[in-house]
Simulated scan of single mutants.
Amino acid sequence: MKLLFLLFVGIVLYLIAKGYKTEKFENIKLNVKEKFDGDLMNHEAGLLVALMAKVAKADGQVCDLEAEMLKHTFTDISRHFENSDEIREKLKVIYSKEKESFDNTLEICEKLYKITKNHYQKRVKIIEYLLNLAFIDKEFSQTEFMIAEDIANALKIKRTDFENLINAFENFYREQKENKALSLDKAYEVLESNKDDDNNTLKKNYRKLVKQYHPDIVSGQGASQSIIDDATKKLQEINEAYELIKKDRGI
Score class of each variant (00 low, 15 high):
residue 177 K to C: 01
residue 14 Y to M: 15
residue 142 Q to A: 10
residue 133 L to A: 02
residue 71 K to G: 05
residue 138 K to V: 10
residue 50 A to I: 07
residue 108 I to Q: 07
residue 69 M to T: 09
residue 104 N to I: 14
residue 99 K to I: 13
residue 233 K to H: 15
residue 158 K to W: 00
residue 144 E to L: 02
residue 177 K to S: 10
residue 82 E to F: 15
residue 125 K to Y: 13
residue 130 L to Q: 07
residue 205 N to A: 14
residue 116 T to W: 01
residue 41 M to F: 05
residue 49 V to T: 12
residue 40 L to Q: 02
residue 165 L to W: 02
residue 235 L to Y: 09
residue 156 K to D: 10
residue 206 Y to H: 13
residue 83 N to W: 04
residue 4 L to M: 14
residue 204 K to W: 08
residue 144 E to I: 04
residue 221 Q to N: 11
residue 155 L to Q: 07
residue 247 K to L: 06
residue 154 A to S: 06
residue 68 E to P: 00
residue 12 V to Y: 06
residue 72 H to T: 03
residue 172 F to Q: 00
residue 24 K to V: 04
residue 193 S to D: 14
residue 59 D to I: 02
residue 118 N to H: 07
residue 96 S to M: 12
residue 193 S to E: 13
residue 159 R to G: 06
residue 161 D to W: 05
residue 172 F to L: 09
residue 41 M to N: 02
residue 43 H to K: 11
residue 174 R to M: 10
residue 18 K to E: 15
residue 217 I to L: 15
residue 56 A to I: 00
residue 245 I to T: 11
residue 207 R to Y: 13
residue 191 L to V: 14
residue 230 D to V: 05
residue 19 G to R: 12
residue 89 E to Q: 15
residue 125 K to N: 04
residue 92 K to T: 08
residue 45 A to M: 07
residue 136 I to Q: 14
residue 89 E to W: 13
residue 137 D to L: 04
residue 72 H to C: 02
residue 205 N to Y: 10
residue 128 E to G: 01
residue 224 S to W: 01
residue 62 V to G: 00
residue 31 N to W: 09
residue 234 K to M: 15
residue 173 Y to A: 00
residue 2 K to N: 15
residue 141 S to P: 11
residue 205 N to L: 13
residue 184 L to H: 08
residue 190 V to T: 14
residue 138 K to D: 08
residue 206 Y to K: 12
residue 109 C to H: 02
residue 139 E to N: 07
residue 184 L to N: 05
residue 223 A to D: 07
residue 9 V to C: 09
residue 16 I to W: 10
residue 22 T to N: 03
residue 156 K to G: 00
residue 147 I to R: 00
residue 48 L to G: 03
residue 106 L to I: 12
residue 243 E to Y: 15
residue 226 S to L: 10
residue 88 R to S: 07
residue 15 L to A: 04
residue 217 I to R: 11
residue 164 N to P: 03
residue 168 A to V: 05
residue 208 K to T: 08
residue 4 L to H: 09
residue 56 A to K: 03
residue 164 N to G: 03
residue 124 V to W: 11
residue 144 E to Q: 05
residue 81 F to V: 09
residue 5 F to Q: 14
residue 150 D to Q: 13
residue 78 S to C: 03
residue 30 L to I: 08
residue 18 K to I: 08
residue 182 L to M: 08
residue 121 Q to N: 05
residue 8 F to P: 04
residue 187 A to P: 14
residue 112 L to C: 02
residue 44 E to A: 10
residue 122 K to Q: 08
residue 24 K to G: 04
residue 119 H to M: 12
residue 175 E to Y: 03
residue 36 F to W: 11
residue 86 E to N: 05
residue 165 L to S: 03
residue 21 K to W: 01
residue 80 H to C: 13
residue 84 S to P: 00
residue 196 D to C: 01
residue 22 T to R: 01
residue 3 L to A: 13
residue 204 K to D: 11
residue 234 K to P: 11
